[in-house]
C-alpha cells in the first residue's frame, strides 16, 4: 500500500498515546523505486457477503516486478481481496485496477495476461497434468506467448508425472501443477493463493526458488500465505490483514520497525534509580527489568552509560528487535477495529 511517504529514519519517533502503527510507507530506496509503474491497485476496496463485510475499505498498490505478500489470520479477507483483484467478483465499493484494466469488467482480456493459483485446484481428477495444460493453452488464446506443456511441467519438476491422473497426485504435486497452470500463458502478473500449502519443506524451498526466478524475470507476484517465513523469504513488501482491514504494510524492515524492541536485564538489589529512558520500563521479580522501546539504540546506550557510571552489572542483558512473528501475533490478538471502513488504520499496541 502506498501512503504518504514518511522520511526514512532508523529511529522512528515514538508517537505519543496509542499509535496508528498500522500504516507504514514503503521504502523510497533500494532496488524497488517508487517510480516503477503500478501493476495493480485497490482504493477503498469493500467486499460483502450479505450483511458481513469481509473487506473493509482497504488501499493496496503493487508495483511492476514486485513480490508482495498478503498475510493474515483465517477469515481476514485475503482470499476475497485476491478474488476481487483476479476479477472473480465485483467489488461492493471502491476501485480496483489490474494491469490498467478493470478486472471484473475486462476479465477475459486480463485472463490472457495473468496467472492464477487458486486456493483449491478446481481441476477434474480424471484428467492428466498434460491434458489440463494443453487445455489451458487453448483457453487463453490471446496470451502473448505460451509455454509448452512439457516445459511448464519441467519448470515445476512435475514432468515425470505428466501422464498420471490428477486424482493420483499428492497434495504438493497438485499445488505444483497449479503453479504450472499459472505460468503456462507467460503472465505479467501472477496471483498465488497459499502457494505452498501441502508441500514438504524441500518442495516448498524449490517453489520459492521458482518464484525468486520469476521475480528476476520481472514478473509481478501477489501471494497470500499463512507462513510468515514464506513472506520473509520472498516478499519485497508485505501487508498483514486482520478482520477485513490492512493492519500494517511495508517492507519487512519497516513492518518490524513499527513494533517496539525489547531490552531485558537483571540488576542488583541496590541498583540506583534508572535514567530517563524513552521506552516503557517494567519490573518483574528477582530485579528483572524489561524495557519496550521504539528507540532501541538510544535507550540501550543510555542504560549502558548508566551502568558504567554507577558501576552496575547488567546480568543476562538482551536487546531484541521485533520479529514478524511478534508483529503478526500482536495484530492477530488485538481487538477488532471499532470503526468499520477505516481499513488501513487499525490501532494496535
Amino acid at each position: 500500500m502506498d501512503t504518504t511517504p514518511n522520511p526514512p529514519t532508523n529511529e522512528p519517533a515514538r508517537p505519543s498515546g496509542p499509535s496508528p502503527v498500522a500504516t507504514v510507507s514503503r521504502s523510497t530506496s533500494g532496488d524497488l523505486p517508487d517510480e516503477r509503474p503500478t501493476a495493480l491497485s485497490a482504493t477503498a476496496l469493500r467486499c460483502r457477503y450479505g450483511a458481513f463485510e469481509a473487506v473493509r475499505g482497504i488501499d493496496l498498490t503493487v508495483r511492476r516486478g514486485e513480490t508482495f505478500a498478503l498475510l493474515g489470520t483465517n477469515g481476514a479477507g485475503k482470499t476475497t481481496t485476491l478474488e476481487t483483484l483476479e476479477g472473480h467478483r465485483a467489488p461492493d465499493g471502491g476501485d480496483v485496477e489490474v494491469l490498467g484494466l478493470d478486472p471484473h469488467a475486462e476479465r477475459r482480456t486480463l485472463a490472457a495476461r495473468i496467472g492464477l493459483m487458486l486456493q483449491t485446484s478446481g481441476l477434474p481428477g480424471d484428467l492428466t497434468p498434460r491434458e489440463v495444460l494443453e487445455l489451458w493453452r487453448r483457453l487463453t488464446p490471446e496470451a502473448s506467448d505460451h509455454l509448452d506443456a512439457t516445459d511448464a511441467l519441467t519448470r515445476v519438476e512435475l514432468d515425470h508425472r505428466a501422464e498420471v491422473r490428477i486424482r493420483q497426485l499428492s497434495g504438493g504435486e497438485r499445488r505444483r501443477l497449479d503453479l504450472a497452470l499459472a505460468l503456462v500463458n507467460d503472465p505479467e502478473l501472477i496471483f498465488l493463493d497459499e502457494p505452498t500449502t501441502g508441500m514438504d519443506p524441500q518442495a516448498r524451498e524449490r517453489t520459492w526458488q521458482i518464484l525468486r526466478d520469476l521475480r528476476v524475470e520481472g514478473v509481478t507476484i501477489l501471494l497470500t500465505t499463512h507462513y510468515l517465513e514464506e513472506a520473509e523469504a520472498l516478499a519485497d513488501r508485505l501487508a498483514i490483514m486482520h478482520a477485513g482491514a490492512l493492519a500494517t504494510t511495508g517492507t519487512l524492515t519497516e513492518v518490524i520497525a513499527s513494533q517496539p524492541a525489547t531490552i531485558t536485564a537483571r540488576l542488583s538489589a541496590d541498583a540506583p534509580e534508572l535514567p530517563d529512558l524513552d521506552g516503557d520500563i517494567r519490573w518483574a521479580g528477582d530485579h528483572r527489568l524489561a524495557i519496550t522501546t521504539r528507540r532501541l539504540q538510544q535507550d540501550l546506550t543510555g542504560l549502558l552509560v548508566w551502568a558504567r557510571t554507577h558501576g552496575q552489572r547488567l546480568d543476562e542483558l538482551q536487546a531484541t528487535d521485533a520479529s514478524l512473528t511478534q508483529v503478526f501475533h500482536d495484530i492477530a490478538g488485538a481487538p477488532l477495529a471499532t470503526a468499520p471502513g477505516d481499513g488501513t488504520r487499525r490501532e494496535h499496541r
Binding site: 483476479e86 472473480h88 477475459r108 482480456t109 485472463a111 490472457a112 492464477l116 487458486l118 483449491t120 485446484s121 478446481g122 481441476l123 477434474p124 481428477g125 489451458w136 483457453l139 487463453t140 488464446p141 490471446e142
Partner: peptide, 17 residues
C-alpha cells in the same frame, strides 16, 4: 459436480466466456 469441485470457477478464470 463441476461446480462442487470448483472446476467451473477454474474454467471461468480463463479467457473462456
Amino acid at each position: 459436480s463441476r461446480r462442487e469441485q470448483l472446476v467451473l470457477k477454474r474454467w471461468r478464470s480463463s479467457q473462456a466466456s
